[in-house]
Design a protein around this nucleic acid. Structure first.
Length: 499
DNA sequence: GAGTTTGAAACT
DNA sequence: CAGTTTCAAACTC
């Protein structure tokens, strides 16, 4: 088997215990109580809930998948992202080699439940009372048994001590210790992201119907000489936790029973979730099947960077900004790889210190009427008219909005310049978000109008036009601005506007 | 492919 | 927070 084949992953069709869905209930949690009262049978694929232990005021519930009789629905799908490497600063899972079922699976595969997991999500979030939208829970388990650890650590979950058993039989790899992280986004329609530290061998086949992933790093770049391939993966995970803890991105906790678990702080969990947005997901090509295994090939679509001075450790680097390690790039002196984990982690931390939302997608979630969402910060273009790819809004195929601070913007609905631009642009028909209607002439509108006029004056000057021609251009621009303002006002009041 | 332009990110 | 510098992508020739 060559190295390329080593990159391919095989997936076992069957596991006896399935993926983990840690749920927790405290007596203070009416949401969980409500969930229980309505029965967890509504959770697809999970039909049996057991009360496993009772300690202090807390009760741990365990949901065991019954894959044989309650398969997960066909809509279920996973996606994965490489961003979690930021969270856990581990070497890549892409080193996993077929035929070594006990080799560690040191990095994280982010498995995103696109299934109707609202119930699961609500259950998970019910452990916390801090009102956050995104929760990140991490621990180790074979039997899905997490329990609340500390009242002061609402996110902290601990695995039951009995889950530390390791298998005697190599064929029974699902009995292995299964480190799992659950990220739950309440605002995302009840999405649950599970980060399996273990190999995809342990993913139920029924969950593999629509598997997506991000780019596959080159094994040579991903290799980590210090990586531990011990059968249990415990040493690796512990090491990774330490590395991670050193970056401040992950807290490592230990139970009285000696069981360790990791906890990613909420903000990073949020970014992790957002890193799973479809824009960063590429196709996974299924190559074929062998007995009980799926063999897949990961396809890379990430655009290579050409950084020369940033060491690919600043947001100038697209790979870094997207949460990817550089792979097949043309960059020089690159540190955005697992060989420079320390530098990379420090750089990530520095970016997050500067801007906690640094790794969040710039294109926010869709809003009313918008097909593709809007730029969260808005652009600041001055000379491109927002009709070139310099403009982040234009590049993302979205209209500029009132959030933008651009000057001389043409990237709005029905802009004459934009119309001609659209003709040269493929797939433009798929986006028709509307510019936020300006229902009155606010100072912002005045400022924007003046900006347009100034831009037009600059353009006239640049073209060496006569003052009369420049004047005419500016007046025409003013007319366009007025037309736009009036049209927006009429549109917002649903009154027909005839030019 | 080299040089220029552009605007985001980083820095002061 | 504003102004300046750095940077890499987009663009032009």
């Amino acid at each position: 088997m060559n190295e390329l084949e080593d990159q391919e992953y095989s997936y076992k069709r069957d596991i006896s215990e399935g993926s983990l869905v840690p749920l927790h209930h405290t007596h203070e949690s009416p949401r969980m109580a409500n969930l229980i009262s309505h029965g967890m049978h509504s959770v697809p694929g999970y039909s049996r809930m057991e009360e496993s232990l009772r300690e202090d005021d807390y009760t741990t519930y365990r949901i065991l998948p019954q894959l044989t009789c309650d398969p997960l629905p066909p809509v279920a799908h996973f996606s994965s992202a490489s961003y979690p490497e930021y969270l856990l600063a581990q070497s890549s899972h892409y080193q996993h080699v077929l035929g070594q079922p006990y080799s560690s699976w040191p990095s994280q595969e982010a498995f995103h439940y696109g299934m109707s997991s609202g119930e699961i999500c609500r259950a998970v979030t019910s452990i916390s009372s801090d009102g956050a939208d995104v929760y990140s829970l991490e621990g180790y388990s074979t039997h899905q048994g997490f329990r609340h650890h500390d009242r002061n650590q609402p996110h902290a979950l601990l695995v039951s001590p009995h889950d530390q058993k390791l298998p005697d039989d190599t064929s029974n790899i699902c009995q292995m210790l299964q480190p799992v992280q659950v990220v739950c986004d309440v605002t995302g329609g009840g999405q649950v992201v599970m980060l399996n530290h273990c190999g995809p061998d342990q993913i139920p086949h029924s969950l593999m119907t629509d598997l997506n992933t991000v780019s596959l790093p080159n094994p040579s770049e991903q290799s980590c000489p210090t990586e531990d391939h011990s059968p249990t993966g415990k040493a690796s995970d512990a090491g990774h936790s330490e590395k991670f803890a050193s970056t401040g991105l992950l807290q490592t906790h230990k139970t009285s029973a000696g069981v360790t678990f990791n906890l990613a702080p909420g903000p990073y969990a949020s970014q992790l979730h957002q890193a799973l947005c479809p824009t960063q997901i590429v196709e996974l090509e299924e190559e074929g099947q062998t007995k009980g295994r799926r063999r897949v090939k990961w396809e890379k679509s990430k655009r290579p960077c050409n950084c020369t001075k940033s060491q690919c450790l600043k947001l100038y680097c697209e790979c870094f900004a997207n949460g990817d390690v550089c792979n097949n790039c043309k960059c020089l002196n690159c540190y955005n790889n697992t060989e420079h984990n320390l530098e990379r982690s420090q750089a990530i931390k520095a970016c997050l210190d500067r801007n906690p939302g640094a790794f969040r997608p710039k294109i926010g979630s869709r809003k009313q009427g918008n097909v593709k969402g809007c730029h969260t910060k808005g652009c600041n273009c001055k000379r491109s008219g927002c009709l070139k790819n310099y403009c982040e809004c234009y590049e993302a195929k979205i209209m500029c909005t009132s959030t933008c601070k651009c000057v001389g913007c043409r990237n709005y609905e029905e802009s004459p310049s934009k119309k001609s631009s659209e003709r040269d642009r493929p797939d433009f028909s798929i986006y028709y978000p509307t510019r936020s209607p300006l229902v009155c002439i606010t100072p912002d509108v005045v400022e924007a109008t003046c900006g347009c006029l100034l831009a037009q004056a600059e353009e006239a000057e640049k073209e060496g036009n006569t003052s009369a021609h420049a004047e005419r251009m500016i007046l025409e621009e003013f007319g366009q601005c007025l037309t736009q303002i009036v049209r927006s006002i009429f549109k917002s009041t649903s009154v027909q506007f005839n030019e």
